[in-house]
Amino acid sequence: MKRLLLLLAFAGVVALMAWGFNQAIFVAPTEATMGDVQRIFYYHVPNAMLSFLFFAISFVASILFLAWKNSAPERAQAADAWALASAEVGVVFCSVVLITGPLWARPVWGIWWTWDARLTTTLILWLIYVSYLLLRRFAEGAQMQTLAAVLSIFGALDVPIVYMANRWWRTQHPAPVFGGGPDSGIKDPTMLAAFGWNVLAWAAWGLMLLAFRVHVERRQQRIRHHQTVAALAGK
């Protein structure tokens, strides 16, 4: 029964992704000045939004891990699994952002990359979380979880600083689409619908990946726990 429900959920997410693809590629009208390349926007922006969401989840889970480490070890382990899983999924989404961005920038700006506020912030964010995942490989056991949580807090502090620094410095990225001023917002309802469907589809896909990854990590934690207990018992 549980397996059937999971399969249905998976099928639902895939159908949503297909619907989002259809909306972005075939339904939404072609943008007047940029042409078809603007359709990358329906992938680039949802992925960027979601990668920030996942990094935020990782940050909160890291704080919870440190808070619960001594008082509630079992809950702390769950928090650690969430921190790891959301950092991994966040890095994947962030990679999509960093790949689709230059693909769009090359025809529109004429350059692949520029050291602009949001591009630099995103790249540094990506670098920080890759170093977080590296740290998790290099160290082991309970102390690794603590060290990784500490690094995650440092990384989260870094992001607003980089962002502000680059705003003062120079900027080329388009102004925020939502909440960027009186002129912002998508005017065409079909475009807005395509964008909304893609945010929804990618959110469902990302959260499903996250849930699976947390589940796997919890099982691995249990396996490691049993192995430790067995080793201590001298078996």
Partner: peptide, 28 residues
């Protein structure tokens, strides 16, 4: 971060890997 990475394997290698990304805004 040196105190942090001292507990890992390959600690000499790990320090720049975690220090540089965090230090980037100050470097800029």
């Amino acid at each position: 971060f040196a105190a942090l990475s001292i507990r890992s394997r390959n600690r000499e290698l790990l320090l720049p890997l975690i220090l540089f990304p965090i230090f980037l805004p100050a470097l800029l």
